[in-house]
Amino acid sequence: MSTFCHLLEGLRSALKTLCGQPVGAGQFDVLGVNLQRSSVITLATALLLTPFYVFTSEILKLLHQDKEILEVAAKYAIWVIPQLYAYALNFPVQKFLQAQSKIWVMTVINIVILVFRILLNWVLLTKLGHGLFGAAMAGNVSW
């Protein structure tokens, strides 16, 4: 999963320039258009990456991975597909806010989400005993 997130990270890095230039020129309407375009591009990329998540089992079989690891990884990959799309939407919004120097907004949101995710993981994993599925769902909800 992390390899595919690196691809989205590369797309997000390109937004640094695309979002910074309109702000410097005072063209905030262009910044909004860039946010929309980048959201479409990152969502399309996530859509193209989805088959890798769906066919994780087959891919890992081709790589001669241990059967027990393969089964767990394949289940987890299916469960975290929503996170892929959440990443795709989150990255452009982060750059949009960063370009406008709204770092405190991102900081507050991330702190709230961190606390929420810790509590959600504790409930799903410790109290309800959902294991790996609970961890995946906590990630999906918090993203």
Rank of each mutant, 00 (worst) to 15 (best):
T56H: 00
V40N: 01
A25N: 00
I113V: 15
W79L: 14
V141L: 15
V105C: 05
T3P: 07
I81Q: 08
L60T: 03
V93C: 11
Q94P: 00
K61A: 11
F116A: 10
G10K: 07
N140M: 05
E9Q: 08
L125T: 05
C19M: 13
I78E: 03
L97Q: 08
M1P: 03
A44K: 02
E68P: 01
V123Q: 00
V72T: 10
G24Q: 13
P51W: 06
P22A: 03
L70W: 03
P92I: 11
Y53R: 06
P82Q: 05
L60C: 00
H130I: 07
P82A: 04
L70A: 01
Q94A: 01
P82D: 11
G139W: 04
A74E: 02
G20D: 05
E58V: 06
L60K: 09
M1R: 03
G20W: 03
V141Q: 06
L35C: 13
L15I: 09
Y76Q: 04
A135H: 10
G129M: 08
L48Q: 07
R12T: 10
N121G: 00
H64P: 01
F4L: 12
H6F: 10
S2D: 10
Q100A: 12
L124W: 02
Q83D: 10
S38D: 02
N121S: 14
A88N: 06
T17H: 01
Q27G: 01
E9R: 02
G131S: 01
S39F: 07
L18E: 05
L63M: 13
A99S: 15
V105T: 15
R117T: 14
C19P: 02
Q36G: 10
L18W: 03
V108H: 08
